[in-house]
């Protein structure tokens, strides 16, 4: 039996054939035992499936179930929405975290280097890079004066006898 004839049998069982064609198929069934046997088998199968489906109860209404399917299809078809831009306060906070760390370091540096009551910074240790090995330093703390006496100019460098001839 070919495939078209099998489909005709199925259509008959489903009641989808026009009246004239249905009577023609019925005549054919009366003459062909193989076709009749197949019709019985299809009928049994249909009956079994109907009994099986009858036991299944949907937890929701039919309309609701299909609306869910529809929404899911629409969701998949919709392009992914762009992530919402972060609010200004969040951006500001993101900037402030490193900025405040830098600010804290600057403030710490300023506080640590703040002059004491005499006006001298803790880190401001006097450092002298003297080319003049004969120099000496005198510090008058009460007057706030530092004197650095140099051997410059060396005696041999004093070429003239003009006062201030060396520096003027």
């Amino acid at each position: 039996m070919d495939y078209d004839k099998q489909l005709k049998l199925q259509a008959l069982l489903d009641g989808e054939l026009p009246e004239a064609e249905a009577s023609a198929v019925a005549q054919w069934l009366a003459q062909d035992h193989e076709a009749a046997a197949l019709r019985e088998e299809l009928r049994n199968t249909r009956g079994a499936l109907a009994e099986f489906e009858a036991g299944i109860q949907m937890p929701e209404s039919r309309e609701f179930f299909w609306s869910k399917v529809q929404r899911e299809i629409e969701r998949l078809e919709t392009p992914a929405a762009k992530p919402a831009s972060a609010p200004f306060s969040a951006l500001w906070r993101r900037f402030l975290v490193p900025a405040s760390a830098v600010a804290a370091l600057i403030i710490a540096g300023v506080v640590l280097n703040r002059p004491d009551s005499t006006g001298h910074t803790p880190a401001a240790e006097i450092e002298t890079a003297l080319a003049d090995s004969g120099a000496f330093t005198y510090r008058d703390y009460s007057a706030g004066t530092t004197l650095v006496w140099l051997s410059y100019p060396a005696d041999t460098e004093v070429a003239d006898n003009d006062e201030m001839g060396t520096v003027e």
Binding site: G119, T128, L130, Y152
Partner: peptide
């Protein structure tokens, strides 16, 4: 002649 680093507050 000389190079010196030091603290020199106002006055």
């Amino acid at each position: 002649v000389v190079k010196r680093k030091q603290s020199l507050p106002k006055g």
